[in-house]
């Protein structure tokens, strides 16, 4: 067992786990940050999407060892205080989620898009979001939500 110190959502968290443990299990099972989801474990679905130093990354593919050096990890819980990030608001306005299981990953991926490209075209949205699966088939509403959010001027400041 090894002690790791992680910087998650702007606060320090310590865990003691075996080397090589996936960041996803650390977040979910050891730290209780369960908004990040497990669905495939092999990088195919994007349910586990988090930001590391502002880059969208799949937590299931990462080993905790490599992210305990001051890298800034952001999960859905750290996206906004009251669930009112412009992307989250747009998601509610579009009534995007159905079962909801994939949606936190979708939102993290969408935020990453709008942070670098505040006015994406539909094709850019589709290709950026293509890696995140939704079995309930909410894709059209996700596109709508991203288009709504991209019209919100504050979307990149939050």
């Amino acid at each position: 067992m090894v002690r790791f110190q992680l910087d998650i959502n702007n606060s320090k968290h310590t865990v003691e786990v075996a080397e090589g443990t996936s960041l996803l299990w650390v977040l979910r099972e050891h730290l209780g940050l369960t908004g990040t989801k497990y669905s495939c474990g092999i990088g195919q679905c994007g349910a586990c999407m988090v930001h590391i130093d502002n880059e969208p990354m799949r937590a299931c593919l990462l080993q905790v060892d490599n992210y305990a050096d001051g890298q800034k990890i952001k999960t859905i819980e750290g996206l906004s205080k009251n669930g009112d990030h412009p992307v989250q608001k747009a998601w509610i306005e579009a009534q995007a989620p159905q079962c909801g299981y994939c949606q936190t990953g979708q939102i993290m991926q969408a935020v990453a898009l709008l942070e670098t490209n505040p006015n994406p075209t539909r094709e850019e949205i589709k290709s950026h979001m293509n890696g995140i699966l939704c079995r309930c088939g909410t894709y059209l509403r996700i596109i709508k939500a991203i288009e709504l959010a991209s019209k919100t001027p504050t979307s990149i400041e939050n």
């Binding site: 989801k37 996206l79 509610i92 995007a96």
Partner: peptide
Amino acid sequence: IPRTEIPAKVNGSAMFAIDIR
């Protein structure tokens, strides 16, 4: 009428059984 459980599904607080600890 907006769905009641959607806010919890966009902020990560909606509890699925897999989230129980």
